[in-house]
Structures are given as structure tokens and as C-alpha cells.
């Protein structure tokens, strides 16, 4: 006797438990979003579980997008993310192309070198001194170049390139294709998912970078990136430098804004690029993970 799908008690308990876990992730985010869109008179009174804005107001976002420190930081973040990701992709894919050639004579020693580089972390100060020695202090290139290649992503890329059929490569070689032509006309098109995956990963890491920007880009207050300002404001609770000493004294619009809601708006601005990239990450990387069904 086969019964139509009826939920067992176990399924219900499991469902509620997993729902609870996802709510611990969704509710805080929606709460921050709701507060950031509420008027400064309402938002301080909203609890931590409210997910709908009260008396919708864009004041927090107006402040963020006209702020003398936040706006340059946002622009710097975008520049470092775009240029940095391009540097990442160019270096990683060319290196993966070379190292995925099956008969490369020096492949063994180079791979050993890379694995040692991956395993052994020289630490913060030795790297800091190199950035000083190279005169990169205060330049965006410090942050961009220090993390130019990630060995894990290089290995992922090699796995994709190794799947390109040798017959195609040989045919192209006979036709006299150069290595760069090979890379652009054969390897990129045939490994689209792989290139897309590491592009997303690199871009996310670039956008989220705060630590190196915080120690290398300290010359001027307008040198730094959004995540560093966010840390100063949200984590260290430094409201004065964000609001501005003068505004605090004058007790004008800036000083009367709800700091928590303004922090919320800054957090939301820092999350938006991630939310834009996230569907693509799921599409290219985690695609197979969604297909599995229950087997009984």
C-alpha cells in the first residue's frame, strides 16, 4: 500500500530546524535593511527582529553617497576590485595554461615550488617590509599585487584546462596557432565555467579585502577602501570621524541621524556587489550541488 507523500514527524522537525537556521541568516540582514530605509525618528525604536521599514526614508543612503570619506572609499574599492580581478585572471589563467601542458619539462619542480609557497606563510611583518622595500606603501598596487595569484584557484583552473581535448590542441598547433591564440580561441571558450568560477571567487575576495588595505593604504584618509571605513565605523564604533567633528558640534542633520541605521546603510552598500555576484557563483560553482535528490 503506497501512500501519497505525507510528512512524517521527523520531516516536520527537520524542516523547522533548518528553517530556524536560515532565519538566523536572513532576519539580521533584513532587519538592518529595514532600519536603513526607515526615518531617523523611527529606526532607533525598531527592535532587532523587525524586517519591514517604518516611515520609509532615504536619508541614510543620501548621506552614504555624498559622504567626503565614504564616496572616495567606494570608488577605491571598485577600482581595486576591477583592476585586481583582471590581474588575478590574467596571471592565473596564463600560468594554468602553461602548467596544464602535459609534456612541460619543468612542471614537476615548478609545482613543488608552488605547493611550498602555498603551505608556508611568511607572516605579516616580512610581507610588510617587502611592500616598503618596493615603495608600494600608499599605492593601490600594494593591495592589488600582494594577492595577485592564489595557488588554490590556480590549481582549480589547471583542472579545467586539463579537460580540453588534446586532439583539438594538436590540430591548432599544426595550423600554426600561437600560445596566445590557443588561450583565447580554444582554452577560454572551452573552459567558460572554470574562468567564470575563479573570476567570481577572486572578485569576492577583492571586494571583501580590508586588512591589507588597512595597513598599506594609510597615507591619506581618501586612500582607503569601503571595508576599512566600515570596520572603523561599525566594528570600532568610531562615529565621530564619520559624522565629522564639526557636525557633532553644530548638531545638524548629520548629527541627528540614527548612527545604527547609518551603519546599516553602509553595511548594505558593502553587501550589494556580493549579492550581484552570488547567483553567478551558485550557477557556475555550486550547480551540481542543487541537482541531488533523495535516494531511497
Amino acid at each position: 500500500m503506497k501512500k501519497a507523500k505525507r510528512l512524517s514527524a521527523g520531516q516536520v522537525v527537520l524542516g523547522f530546524f533548518l528553517l530556524f537556521i536560515t532565519l538566523t541568516m536572513l532576519v539580521p540582514l533584513l532587519n538592518i535593511l529595514a532600519k536603513s530605509f526607515s526615518s531617523p525618528l523611527e529606526s532607533p525604536l525598531m527592535g532587532g527582529l523587525t524586517i519591514f521599514p517604518k516611515d520609509v526614508d532615504f536619508i541614510n543612503y543620501k548621506i552614504v553617497f555624498s559622504h567626503p570619506i565614504l564616496v572616495p572609499a567606494l570608488i577605491n574599492s571598485i577600482i581595486i576590485t576591477v583592476v585586481g580581478t583582471v590581474v588575478n585572471i590574467v596571471l592565473t589563467t596564463t600560468a594554468a595554461y602553461v602548467l596544464s601542458r602535459p609534456k612541460l619539462t619543468l612542471k614537476g619542480p615548478i609545482m613543488v615550488f608552488l605547493i611550498i609557497m602555498m603551505l608556508f606563510d611568511p607572516g605579516l611583518v616580512p610581507e610588510y617590509i617587502v611592500v616598503q622595500q618596493l615603495g608600494l606603501m600608499g599605492s593601490k598596487w600594494s593591495v592589488i599585487l600582494v594577492t595577485a595569484v592564489n595557488v588554490y584557484y590556480l590549481v582549480i583552473m589547471m583542472r579545467y584546462f586539463e579537460k580540453v581535448p588534446l586532439s583539438i590542441v594538436e590540430a591548432a598547433t599544426i595550423d600554426g596557432a600561437s600560445h596566445l591564440q590557443m588561450l583565447f580561441k580554444i582554452f577560454y571558450p572551452l573552459s567558460k565555467a572554470g574562468v567564470a568560477t575563479i573570476t567570481m571567487f577572486y572578485a569576492v575576495v577583492r571586494w571583501n579585502e580590508y586588512f591589507r588595505a588597512g595597513i598599506y593604504l594609510t597615507r591619506k584618509s581618501t586612500d582607503t577602501v569601503l571595508q576599512v571605513i566600515l570596520r572603523q565605523f561599525v566594528v570600532l564604533g568610531d562615529t565621530v570621524s564619520i559624522i565629522g567633528q564639526q557636525n557633532v558640534f553644530d548638531y545638524n542633520v548629520m548629527a541627528r541621524v540614527d548612527y545604527d541605521a547609518l551603519k546599516g546603510a553602509t553595511i548594505i552598500v558593502a553587501i550589494i556587489p556580493i549579492l550581484i555576484l552570488y547567483p553567478f557563483v551558485l550557477k557556475f560553482y555550486a550547480k551540481d550541488v542543487f541537482s541531488g535528490g533523495i535516494k531511497e
Binding site: 541568516m25 569576492v204 553595511i267 558593502a270 551558485l282
Partner: peptide, 28 residues
Amino acid sequence: QVVSYLPHFLSWVVIAGIWISSLSLAGG
């Protein structure tokens, strides 16, 4: 899956911001 994979992609600064807010005296 879609919800539980998301926090992995948020920066630690953002995560700290969310947690500090949720665990504050007036938090959720």
C-alpha cells in the same frame, strides 16, 4: 542551500557588523 551558502561570501567586517548589531543590548 541558497541561504546557508551566503554568509561564506560576506566579508568579516560585514559579519562582525551584523553580529554586533544582533547581539547588542537592543538586538534581536
